[in-house]
């Protein structure tokens, strides 16, 4: 937290975003963005998980408590999950978690759930730009 606060004063503040990407689609999509040299903001730190369904609500809350300004969870498109239906479980789960966060006074925009396939390097970059913009506008996360 100290780091983000000091930065606000010196240079333009930019958010720290943790991105949980499923190994099979989105992580590969992020690699493809690289192979295609598609540029996007350097704010995300990627954590590789087997499937978007692996991301427990606990990780999201912990991340926000720990000073990450925002969270991205990205998996395969519905129907394309490497594990058949993990992403559908994830989708259901995140519908709920956004409500819970809002109840705690955390802007739902800090948690972004998205789909990007292994072939969608461009889409991945676009979605990351979008998520970065949303989280940046929300400003640094409050301590809670």
């Amino acid at each position: 937290m100290t780091q983000t606060e000091t930065k606000t004063e010196s240079e333009e503040w930019t958010p720290k975003i943790i991105a949980f990407l499923c190994n099979w689609c989105s992580y590969a999509g992020a690699d493809l963005a690289g192979v295609s040299r598609i540029q996007y903001p350097p704010n995300i730190r990627i954590v590789r998980v087997p499937c978007s369904g692996r991301v427990s609500p606990f990780f999201i809350i912990k991340s926000l408590m720990d000073g990450w300004d925002g969270v991205v969870i990205s998996g395969c498109h519905p129907g394309d999950c490497h594990y058949i239906s993990g992403n559908l479980v994830a989708r259901r789960r995140f519908g709920i978690i956004r409500d819970v966060l809002e109840f705690f006074g955390i802007e739902p925009g800090r948690v972004n759930f998205m789909w990007a396939s292994a072939a969608e390097g461009e889409r991945f970059a676009v979605l990351i730009r979008k998520a970065t913009k949303i989280i940046k506008e929300l400003g640094p996360i409050k301590k809670f």
Partner: peptide
Amino acid sequence: NIRDQNTWVHQKEPEKAFEK
């Protein structure tokens, strides 16, 4: 992963890629 998801996608911001 510091190539596909770092230097290749932040080619114009090497200092930030370094920190990342």
